[in-house]
Amino acid sequence: DAAEQLTPVLLDGPREESLQLVSELKDSSCSCAVDVSTVWWEAAGCRELRVVTASESAVSLWEPLAPDCWGKVYTWHLREIPVIQIISLPDTCNLVCVALGELEIGEIRLLLYSCETDSFKHSVVKTGNIKAVVGLKDWRLVSSSRTMQEQQVEMVSLSETGGSKDGQTLMPPEETVTAFAEVEGMREALVGTTAGNSVVVWNLKTGQLLRKMHVGYSYPASICHRAYSDSGLLFVVLSHPLAKESESCGSPAFRVVAFNPLTGRSAGVMFSCLPPGHAGRQYLEGDVWDTAGAAVLTSGAVAVWDLLRGWCTAVLPPGPAGHWALARWATGGAGLLAGHRDGTVHLYRY
C-alpha cells in the first residue's frame, strides 16, 4: 500500500542527450543477434574491456582498435545447441560464460583462452533444465534447475582452466526460482525471485533458505536484478515485465523495494515507469547497473532510468536500422550497449 502512494516523477521528459554515442560495431556475419555483453580481457600485460556479441550459433570477442572502432578477435562456433544468453561474471578476466538451449537453458558453457595451449576453447560446466542462472563475485555460478520431481539450486566455483571446482547445494523453495541477485557487500547472501512472486534469501555458505517474502499480487512475474543491505533492511531492485498499468503509478518497469528480512514485511521505495507515449504494453527485457536501469520497450525504443529517483533519463527511439532488441550495461558502468537483431551494436556513454 505504501508503494502505491508513491508518485513517480518525470524530469521534464526524458533527455536523449544523457546518452552519447561513442562507437558502433557491426557483425556482418550475424544473422540474428541474441545478446551482447562486455568482459575484461588481459593480453600481453594489458587489461582492457572487450565487447562480446552472441548469435544463435556463434559468440564473438571484440577488441578496441581505436576510440571509435572495434575489431573481432575471435569467434567461438557453437552449432549444436542455440546460444540463448551471455551470463555476466562480475570479477573474472579472459572468461565468457554463455547459456545454450532451445526454449529454456539446457547447458552452460565457459568460453576462454588457454595460455598453456595458446588457444581458445570452451567447456561445459552445467547441464539440465535450467530455469535461472547468475554469475557471482569470486568466480561463482548459481543456477536453478528442475526435474519432474524436484528443483535443484546449486552454486559451483569456476576454475581458471574452464572447469568447476567446489559445489554447494542450496535449499530450494517450493516455487520455481526465476532469477537471482547477489547481495552486494555480503559475500554469503543471495536473493532470488520465484514464479509465485516471492523474494527468497539464501545463506550461500550453509545452503540455508533463510526467508521467503511475498512481493504482492500487483506485480506478477517480478525479476530481481540487484540487492543490497542498508540499515537492517534488504533493498531489492525488481523489474516487472507484466505489471498492470495503474492510474497512480503508470506502468512500472522497475521498482526498488525495501524488505525487513526479520519480519518479511516490505515497502515500495520508488517506481520507475514507462515514459509517456510508450505506456500500455510492457517491456521486453531489462538490465540494471548500480542505480541505472535500462530496458527495451515493445515500441522498439530503449529507455533508461535513474532508479532511486524514478526518473526516465533517456530514450533511444528506434532508428533507421529498426527496433532495438538488446540493452545491456557495460561492466563497471562503462556505458550502455544497445543492439539490433541484425548484429549492429551501439556503445553509449551515460
Binding site: 535449499m171 545463506n203 550453509t206 526467508r211 525495501a258 524488505f259 525487513n260 528480512p261 526479520l262 514485511r265
Partner: peptide, 23 residues
C-alpha cells in the same frame, strides 16, 4: 534492534536468520 513500520529491524539480520533457519 530498533522498531520501524516494517517491524523490528536488526543490522545483523543475516546472522540472526542463519542461526534460526533449519540447517
Amino acid at each position: 534492534c530498533s522498531e520501524t513500520d516494517l517491524g523490528p529491524i536488526s543490522l545483523n539480520w543475516f546472522e540472526e536468520l542463519s542461526a534460526e533457519a533449519p540447517p
